[in-house]
Amino acid sequence: MTVHFRLALAGFFLVLSMPALASPAGHYAFGQPAAAASATRTIEVHMTDMAFTPTSLEVKAGETVRFFLVNKGQLLHEFNLGDAAMHAGHQKEMLKMQQGGMMTPTGMNHENMDHAAMGHGASGEMKHDDPNSVLVEPGKTAELTWTFSQADNLEFACNVPGHYQAGMVGTVKVGP
């Protein structure tokens, strides 16, 4: 085997081993972000401290849904679409944000960020900007619009440290 062939083969297997959840354009296996104007339905989701209402959602494959999120609790909460494995990974990132002083119990602390301490460079790569996720401070509202594709075991969750474990997670059934 030539060196070039081995490198190409190694690159091929590296790409195959990467999660198929996201691509650089923000497309996930379970769907993609969309403009609010393209939504065919709006679902209001209330966040209280350690609970979502409703706790389960039903959507159709190809449907574009605008989520209107209302934080009625006293703590910062997140609305994040994904599967359990994706949430587990995101929870680790959120814990680093909290430990680094970037996130407080009630909001984001943009003035006290030490990216180097969180394992990031001084250029500020650590931020909460995933297209399938939004943070909502107490008493505030936010929106997330998503076009769903067929998926199994999809959840919406709050990945602020400890919130998922306390039960702040719901299910999304994507049907035909």
Rank of each mutant, 00 (worst) to 15 (best):
M108F: 12
D152Y: 04
A122G: 15
M168F: 04
A151H: 11
A51N: 13
G119K: 11
V136D: 02
R66Q: 13
C158T: 13
T145K: 00
F79P: 08
G107R: 11
L9W: 05
M94P: 10
N153D: 07
T104Q: 12
E111Q: 15
G124H: 07
A10G: 14
M18G: 07
M50S: 13
K140L: 04
Q165S: 13
F156P: 05
F148S: 13
A51L: 08
L154M: 08
T42V: 07
T48L: 06
E93K: 15
M94E: 03
E44W: 04
N159L: 01
H77K: 04
V59H: 01
P176D: 06
K173M: 11
M97G: 10
F148V: 14
L81M: 11
G139P: 02
K127A: 13
N132M: 01
L14Q: 02
G31K: 09
T40W: 00
E143G: 01
E93S: 14
D49A: 08
Q165W: 09
S17D: 09
V3G: 07
E58L: 11
F79T: 08
Y164K: 09
S23Y: 02
T106E: 03
Q74L: 11
F5V: 10
G101C: 03
H90P: 02
V134F: 06
A122L: 15
H128V: 12
G121L: 09
E125H: 14
D114T: 14
L7V: 10
T106Y: 02
M102Y: 04
T55F: 01
N71Y: 08
G89Y: 09
A51T: 07
T147Q: 08
A25V: 09
A39L: 04
N153F: 06
C158P: 01
A39D: 01
V174G: 00
T171I: 04
D83I: 04
V174N: 02
N153W: 06
Q32S: 15
A85I: 10
T145Y: 01
E143Q: 03
E125T: 15
F12Q: 07
N159W: 03
V45R: 02
L81W: 14
A37I: 10
E111Y: 09
A10F: 11
H4C: 03
T64G: 08
Y28A: 05
M47G: 15
T106D: 03
T55C: 08
L81D: 12
F52W: 07
Q32D: 07
P105F: 12
P19C: 07
G62L: 03
P105T: 12
Q99K: 13
L21M: 07
E78Q: 09
G139V: 05
V169T: 00
H46Y: 10
A151G: 12
V3E: 05
W146D: 06
H77E: 10
